[in-house]
Simulated assay, not measured.
Amino acid sequence: MYRFLLTPRWWGINVFVLLAIPFCIFMGSWQLSRFEDRVQDHRDATEQAAAGRTEAARPLAELLPVDKATSGKRATVTGRYGEQLLVPDRELDGRTGSYVLTLLRTGSGKALPVVRGWLPGAADPAKAPAPPAGEVTVTGALQASETPGDNGVSAASGLPSGQTAAISTASLVNLVPYRMYDAWITLDNGDSGMKTVPASAPSGSGLDLKAFQNLGYTGEWFVFAGFVVFMWFRLLRREAEFVQDAELGLVPDEEKVPSPSGV
């Protein structure tokens, strides 16, 4: 009854199935590994952020450039405060407000953006406390420059003078007359009674949409593998029934050769 499995058409079907199933399993396993990697990155970033709050602060120069290993580490730097900007539409504790961002001019000739704290409500420069005068030494969590449009960072343009949508070197160089570090810090303790802005995990280390897309693709590839097996058994059963009916004389002569579709 199953001699039809040796025909060229079924050789082609069998080869396709034998190649498709391992391919689907491989792709599903790869997507699952990508999801597991993102979960591990998220766990590592969470642990690093917790450890960073208790580690001794290190000089800024030792932690640059900012990467996944140094993001969230406590840095210390000395300088004098200069230009001050507000970063509007930032949420903290479920409320919308603004970061108070002040440029710290260091002895290297570069300026480091320092988030001194968060204020609730609409961005109003009159409500932002003035920075301390004279030379100061600040300590806070090191962060990479933000990318407008990523991780909820606003890409708005045309903001009023004294405001910036993102804490980004590329944006700030157009607003202040300083050379900039490609990094920023958020103070351990909010300055002048402002709320402290917590450090965020580095980009690409969270359980974001991409992570769950990987998980979804995992399920799709395994479903494809199951569908291939299901269709192979379905075609096999239909052809076996056709051959059996033909041997019993239940199929007209003109239908004794199955069509390529197996119908």
Rank of each mutant, 00 (worst) to 15 (best):
A75G: 15
T76V: 11
T76L: 12
T76A: 10
V77E: 14
V77C: 03
V77M: 03
T78P: 05
T78G: 07
T78V: 03
G79S: 05
G79T: 05
Y81R: 08
Y81S: 10
G82D: 04
G82A: 12
G82C: 02
G82W: 00
V87R: 04
V87Q: 03
V87N: 02
D89V: 02
R90C: 06
E91A: 13
L92Q: 11
L92G: 10
L92W: 00
L92Y: 01
D93L: 04
D93P: 12
G94V: 05
G94P: 14
T96H: 07
T96A: 14
G97R: 01
G97D: 01
G97W: 00
S98Y: 00
Y99V: 00
Y99C: 00
V100N: 02
L101Q: 01
T102L: 08
T102R: 11
L103D: 10
R105E: 11
R105H: 12
R105D: 10
T106Y: 08
G107Y: 00
G107L: 02
G107K: 12
S108E: 12
S108R: 10
G109S: 14
K110C: 11
L112Q: 09
V114I: 15
V115D: 13
V115A: 15
V115F: 04
R116V: 03
G117A: 10
G117W: 00
W118F: 08
W118A: 12
L119H: 08
L119G: 13
L119V: 08
P120I: 01
G121E: 13
G121R: 14
D124M: 07
D124K: 13
D124L: 06
A126F: 01
K127R: 15
K127M: 10
A128W: 03
P129I: 00
A130R: 15
A130F: 05
P132S: 13
P132C: 13
P132G: 15
G134W: 04
G134E: 04
G134R: 12
G134T: 10
E135V: 12
E135C: 04
E135A: 12
E135K: 13
E135N: 05
T137F: 06
T137S: 14
V138Y: 04
V138Q: 10
V138T: 08
T139D: 07
T139G: 13
A141D: 09
A141L: 09
A141T: 03
A141P: 07
L142K: 09
Q143E: 11
A144W: 03
A144S: 15
A144T: 02
A144M: 04
